[in-house]
Design a protein around this nucleic acid. Structure first.
Lengths: 177, 177
DNA sequence: TTTTTTATAGATAACCGCTATCTATTGGCC
DNA sequence: GGCCAATAGATAGCGGTTATCTATAAAAAA
């Protein structure tokens, strides 16, 4: 979030409302859930950290008071560092994995049924993503993002197959032993 | 996190250090980065929310003072709700997508080169995950998790291919126009 | 025997991402 | 005049996470 805002300011100084709108446009349908207030929280933190400055609160009194932010040298360095990083979010499969283990351990639910329910949900989301992608103009940036979402969902569905096999085997052991 | 802790307490009341150790074991190599202090933060917040209670701070004075937590009825309801949910973390591809867009817009880096660097990194991580999976005993819970990680990385690599195609086309337009 | 390290057990301050919610103005529309 | 949408900003608070701190007991090294 911070890095994305800084990178947008690297192109040109701008104010919060505009940055929010650009972010939403850039993310397409996936950006619709973005909160308006968040951009101001982020800008305030970046200012406190000395990465941006509010350069004009408008000499010419434009109707809605707008604060235009610009990068400081430290902010420019941070943008350069971000672009040279090759970070990647760690896959967040732990939650479901813990859910299966906890359900089995506490005997509160059947892991195989949890997997089945989850598969139905991911299939629903996959269809949804593919429909949304069709609605997007082909080749648009948001379409590319939706393609990534779909690829991930397909990988996760294959993982659910592996989970089902593994937990079915556990059930057999328990049932047969 | 909160839900995972609650679900472990659903099996049997326990204290923070033990919960932390069980979580780490359950996640295998991926749990090694877990912070010790976090469990206490989580337990304190769960207690404040009335989902757990500290039932004994030890009548028999065991050497290290330990606080044993147990679920409240509200906590049990929350565990049941968690198990019946079919939530799934939203794919976190936005950051890289924004990085490409920002780099191109501010002319700070070549998107195609960013994609190439990212692909090298993901290939490295994929090899790493596969090696770690081999080291894990086959069929173990942690091995299953690593299989999911590998499947995701493969999907992400395919997405990077799509990114490269898309941004190469943009370069051609700019270069040719 | 003394010292150091490791495991056990807990806590706190602070940061970041995010949401819900609030204020205020401008301009269009009925 | 009254109402609604768009523009613009701000704040309180939650949850995840990290870094850092305090202790004690057992095991290993000096």
């Amino acid at each position: 979030m911070q890095d994305a805002v800084l990178a947008m300011l690297a192109k040109e100084p701008s104010h919060g409302y505009d940055l929010h709108a650009r972010l939403r446009r850039s993310l397409g349908p996936l950006g619709e859930s973005m909160n308006r207030g968040q951009i101001y929280v982020t800008l305030a933190r970046l200012e406190r950290a000395g990465l941006v400055v509010c350069e004009r609160a408008d000499g010419l009194p434009e109707r809605p008071e707008r604060k235009v932010y610009a990068l400081t040298p430290a902010g420019q360095r941070r943008v350069a560092a971000w672009l040279s990083e090759v970070g990647w979010p760690k896959p967040d499969l732990a939650e479901f994995h813990l859910k299966l283990a906890a359900a089995a351990a506490a005997r509160l639910a059947d892991p195989v049924e949890l997997v089945a329910a989850q598969r139905r949900e991911l299939l629903r989301r996959l269809r949804e993503a593919q429909q949304t992608a069709l609605a997007e103009s082909a080749g648009s940036g948001a379409g590319l993002l939706l393609e990534g979402v779909a690829l991930r969902l397909q990988a996760d569905l294959r993982w659910l197959d592996a989970c089902e096999r593994a937990w079915s085997a556990v059930d057999d052991e328990v049932g047969g032993g």
